[in-house]
Design a protein around this nucleic acid. Structure first.
Lengths: 253, 253
DNA sequence: GTTGCGCCTCACCCGGCGTGAGGCTTCAGA
DNA sequence: TCTGAAGCCTCACGCCGGGTGAGGCGCAAC
């Protein structure tokens, strides 16, 4: 039940030449040859080929793949586990690139230009440490959330009306500033951002500058929030985020 | 404000030689040279470089990248969209490979052996139809969010305006029904809830009745959402939740 | 003014195949 | 039984995307 080069090549989606090459460099030597010299690949060869192709897809050079596969200390299951981990890491890296592109698109559609250097950094460099920070920011705020729930539960209708009026005033101010083309890091926008922060602190939970910045990120990254702001004025979500950042910087945070 | 080769190389995480190479083959010619012959890269050059690196990461040969980037019919935004789509496809492919490896691991740990040919097919060939269903089941929770991000990333300003108009119409209808004292489980309210669900499905992600009910809960439990609705009409958050529940029941879900 | 670093242009080299050339095997069909 | 088309074999050269010097100039600082 052994297969010829052509069969294997079609099965694996590679060329015959590639199999020849792997044979030449000793990476994958077919288990048998016919008396006429034809290569015949056994089941074990196919397994090895699959491993090779996976590591290749992951970017390993062929000689390293040979070392990895010929390590007598690791069996097939270990290989699979290692491959799995590498694959997962690769998807994570890809996700980073995707979000970078998404940000670039968002920035573009809303007319905010990143500096070219910023974009290169976004894409090229690795920033492993900001990842943890982001997760923290995202799920670490559960205390604030609890606080918020408790307070909100006791609000009367009058409270809601007051809250609503205040929120609307701030939103209107922001929308107006945004549509007027004011800079998000200008005095006025920063003041509005600070009012926004105060509003949250007063009505919901203690909103530190850090939490506030997290909210800003959320407004542009989570479409449900983005939509809320974009319906008030196009580009408002990003405008608000920038204003929040500028305001936090101004306060030395 | 132009940069030298060394600076650019460090920024982008590539070597000087690579930049020389790109200059040689005409893929990226620095905007200026000093009188001594030093390359000086402008902001535009950096933007182009970022695009180049993205396409390179996606596996395009350099000459094709040149063709893509020099196509006068496509602007930067179009490029970004195309890159985005390619990246998404690549992650999808990667995910397939991961599940294939996972299956191989499962089979191994349970002592069931796939035939080598099966494994090669799993890895190499395409199996599109079982893909969707299984991925759904597996990553179901975040799938909606992913979908949403993907779609939102490609929205134009006009899209946002349309979305906004639609959302406002629904909100106004809900607020009016609420203030008029209509029952949230009445025909009218249920119809509005259904329009709400359709709105989300159309613009963000496929919103099943179950997901919709989850959103309803969110609107009354998360103050950030509650506030949004309460500002439209007092009691609206709870009204909407009830309407959503009633609508889901009506549909037999 | 010289020291050190960064830049320049050749020019050769390497990995991972693609792409013939020239010749043998295999197998289906006439 | 013969024949032609695939498919296989072994050289052997070529291409892409750079790596890696060699040999020399430019420039800023001490």
């Amino acid at each position: 039940m052994s297969l010829t080069v052509g069969h294997v090549a079609r099965l694996a989606g590679i060329t015959v030449r590639t199999l020849h090459h792997y044979d030449e460099i000793g990476l994958l030597t077919p288990g048998e040859r016919t008396h006429a010299g034809y290569r015949r690949y056994t089941d074990d060869d196919l397994i090895r080929l699959q491993q090779i192709l996976l590591y290749r897809e992951l970017g390993f050079p062929l000689d390293e793949i040979a070392v990895i596969l010929d390590d007598p200390a690791t069996d097939e299951l270990t290989q699979l586990r290692r491959q799995h981990e590498l694959l997962v890491r690769k998807t994570e890296r890809l996700r980073e690139v995707i979000t970078a592109v998404e940000r670039a698109i968002e920035a573009r559609t809303r007319g905010i230009a990143l500096t070219p250097a910023e974009r290169l950094e976004l894409f090229g460099a690795f920033t492993p440490e900001d990842h943890d920070a982001e997760v923290e920011r995202r799920w670490g705020g559960s205390a604030a959330y609890e606080q918020s729930r408790r307070r909100v539960a006791s609000y009367t209708r009058a409270d809601w009306l007051e809250l609503r009026a205040e929120a609307e005033a701030i939103s209107r101010g922001l929308a107006a500033a945004c549509e007027a083309g004011l800079p998000p890091d200008g005095e006025h926008a920063m003041d509005l951002a600070e009012r926004h922060r105060g509003h949250i602190s007063r009505w919901f939970y203690t909103c530190t500058f850090e939490i506030h910045r997290g909210l800003g990120e959320l407004y542009v990254s989570d479409p449900r929030f983005t939509a809320t702001y974009e319906t008030l004025a196009p580009g408002l979500a990003a405008f608000l985020r920038s204003a929040i950042v500028a305001n936090a910087c101004r306060s030395g945070a």
